[in-house]
């Protein structure tokens, strides 16, 4: 990465997945005054304490995920919460965010359990969550841990018994792997869904033709952010990172990915987020027909307000 930027004169870096790698990379970008477009990473700290003038966090982050999902569920009456937390930094901070959101909305966290990462068998933890009698079992974990926990919960009849599962970091591919049979009724927050409007659908059809699968919000984010970047270069006739960034910040984003999108001074691209619910097998008309959008979370409400930001770039600081 350092070699690309320093020796090969690469001007822009896109993608960037693991949060810790992303944060390290953005430092290199800042030293060299290049530009990074972050899509895959989840940590909201990337545009908070770790913000730089040299990257833009585009598709989503943990803040709207916790806020959107947990907030919505408390409002629907899920008052008592039990949290299954992956026992490492990401899980801990997720647990903290969720607890804050739940309490702010008048709910209560009555228990939590920290499970090893990764955990191949969740039966023991699900059993404990079940015994807690909480209205909601929240999963402060990701990837295989989340899908394993959801599968096990379905097996042990958690939802039939009246408890709700809240997955906090759930991607389309996870739900696809789980299937509607197991994941039905699961509520989650997403920055984009392939079937949410005509423009998204058209683009997704092209993606499907190329890859054989439907895109996630990360795929769409990478595409959208790259187009925005190239447009900005075309407009300004420059490839200087700050000129390009300024141009991108001045351009509202409304495309196949984002509605009401704009890039804030901290590098956060805010846009409407969506609370989605996984369809039942009866509702689902195909392999990838997985979500129904329950609510649109307006851009200003979804992401961490600048007022709460600890980013050095925020002018009011």
């Amino acid at each position: 990465m350092r070699r690309w930027v320093e020796n090969d004169n690469v001007d822009m870096v896109a993608g960037l997945v693991a949060s810790s790698v992303t944060i390290a990379t953005t430092k290199v970008l800042e030293e060299n005054n290049k530009l990074g477009l972050v899509n895959g990473s989840a940590a909201s700290s990337i545009t908070n304490e770790h913000c730089t003038p040299n990257h833009i966090h585009y598709a989503y982050d943990t803040y709207p995920l916790a806020n959107g999902t947990a907030g919505a569920i408390v409002k629907e009456g899920g008052k008592t919460w039990y949290i299954l937390t992956a026992d490492y930094a990401f899980g801990h901070s997720m647990e903290k965010d969720v607890t804050a959101v739940v309490e702010k909305n008048g709910g209560e966290v009555i228990g939590s359990i920290r499970h090893p990462f990764p955990t191949p068998d969740f039966s023991s933890f699900i059993l404990q969550a079940q015994a807690s009698g909480a209205d909601v079992i929240a999963l402060a974990n990701a990837g295989a841990d989340t899908t394993n926990a959801i599968t096990t919960a379905a097996e042990f009849g958690v939802t039939q018994a009246g408890q709700t599962i809240a997955g906090l970091v759930v991607f389309l591919t996870d739900v696809h792997a789980l299937g509607t049979e197991v994941a039905q009724g699961l509520q989650l927050t997403t920055g984009w869904y392939w079937d949410m409007n005509d423009e998204a659908r058209a683009w997704s059809d092209r993606f499907m033709e190329e890859t054989g699968a439907r895109p996630t919000m990360v795929h769409a984010g990478i595409y959208s952010s790259t187009i925005q970047y190239l447009n900005a270069i075309e407009k300004t006739g420059s490839d200087d990172s700050q000129i390009v960034r300024k141009q991108m910040m001045d351009t509202p984003i409304n495309d196949m990915f984002a509605t009401n999108g704009r890039i804030r001074e901290d590098g956060r691209m805010v846009h409407d987020m969506y609370l989605a619910e996984v369809k039942t097998p009866e509702e689902s008309s195909g392999e990838w027909d997985l979500y129904k959008i329950v609510r649109t979370i307006p851009a200003d409400e979804a992401f961490r307000p600048l007022a709460d930001s600890s980013c050095k770039l925020v002018s009011s600081k």
Binding site: Q130, G143, T147, E155, F156, G157, T173, A177, G179
Partner: peptide
């Protein structure tokens, strides 16, 4: 490495409540 899905055979769907736990 993300994991393949294998559906539970139909005969095994559900479980029995043992009083102290739900045993699938």
């Amino acid at each position: 490495v993300s994991g393949l899905r294998y559906s539970m055979p139909d005969v095994f769907k559900g479980g029995v409540n043992l009083g102290f736990m739900f045993l699938p």
